[in-house]
């Protein structure tokens, strides 16, 4: 599988990263080299192998009681916001 410029632009859009036209060609070459390299995994016989998700081996993921254990610290949460309006994050106008 080889990425064309349109696919590079689509991935950048999905990843929410602005990519200038001038960067598309270089990115295309780099991404294709990496994807070509990882295709070696096609050599491996994975028939009947259960996929491994997560890093904890043999340990069930814990569930905790569904209760509020934290919160009530709006000022701390907002302390690092680039822009805020009162107790809210501020963003450019979304709805006309």
């Amino acid at each position: 599988m080889s990425l064309d410029p349109a696919t590079v632009r689509r991935i950048a859009r999905l990843a929410r990263i602005r990519v200038d036209e001038a960067q598309v060609t270089q990115m295309q070459a780099e991404l294709n080299a990496i994807l070509g390299w990882i295709e070696q995994l096609n050599e491996v016989n994975v028939d009947g192998v259960a996929p491994m998700a997560g890093g904890s081996q043999g340990m069930a993921q814990r569930l905790r009681v569904d209760a509020v254990t934290d919160g009530g610290m709006a000022d701390q949460v907002l302390a690092n916001a680039p822009d805020r309006a009162g107790a809210f994050y501020a963003v450019p106008k979304v709805v006309e």
Binding site: M1, L3, T7, V8, I11, A12, L14, A15, I17, M27, E30, L31, I34, L35, I38, L41, N42, V44, V46, V49, A50, P51, M52, A53
Partner: peptide, 29 residues
Amino acid sequence: KRRVMIGTYVLSAGYYDAYYLRAQKVRAL
């Protein structure tokens, strides 16, 4: 950026099984 782009691609519709799911199986091996 490169890694976020690769990650976005291997998780995207149509490619998930070929890349990500296969990698999870090799990881199990």
